[in-house]
Amino acid sequence: MLVMKNINKTFQTGNIQTHALNNFNLTVNEGDFVSVTGPSGSGKTTFLNIAGLLETYTNGEFTLDGKDVGQLNDNGRSRMRNEKIGFVFQGFNLIPDLNLFDNVDVPLRYRGFDAKERRRRIEENLERVGLASRMKHLPSQLSGGQQQRVAIARALATEPRFLLADEPTGNLDSQMAQGVMTLLEEINQQGTTIIMVTHDLELAMRAIRTIQVRDGRVSELDVVAEKASA
């Protein structure tokens, strides 16, 4: 479970303060699939970065899986990212010099699994995204949709509780986007909690729950959306 209470995030650039999140409140339950929409600059990425422990917040309360995130130091946050969170990025963020197998291997190395366990997880997850046959390929030899599938395999290999995706389909054409979305739905059905930021309303509506961020807070619309999907 993810609980954010009155989270504020202020960016200071010279004399200018940007309030990216204003008393942001949100609870995400185990097994949820939450899509996050909202205008550009409203704070979606900021929210996701804080949720994923990539950024710290200025004040407020944030517990993730029962842990008070505010208490963690940098190493603790790194470990928690590695163990509990999987990331999928708009730009895929694969390591161009490593083949698919090695790309999926990276977070597993940080975790310290032995070679056999790593191999099992890599093969299983590449299988799961339908790319097991291309293990030795480099990212540059794949289409965008395929690269995003590898990124999803990498995110899943550590068996995270949460999968966070910031516009995972933003760089894909609609057909590939549909494929990735379907894959995310499958993953969610298998038990992983997903939070996905997207500009694509049609995809957003496929989530179990849709929230909208406006001016750094969750707007009331999410209630409507929840009702609509109910």
Binding site: G52, D74, S78, R79, R81, F87, V106, Y110, R111
Partner: peptide, 16 residues
Amino acid sequence: TKQIGTRRAIGATKWQ
């Protein structure tokens, strides 16, 4: 830079 940020995002500590 982005690759290193990604490594940190997927769990690398500073020391790693």
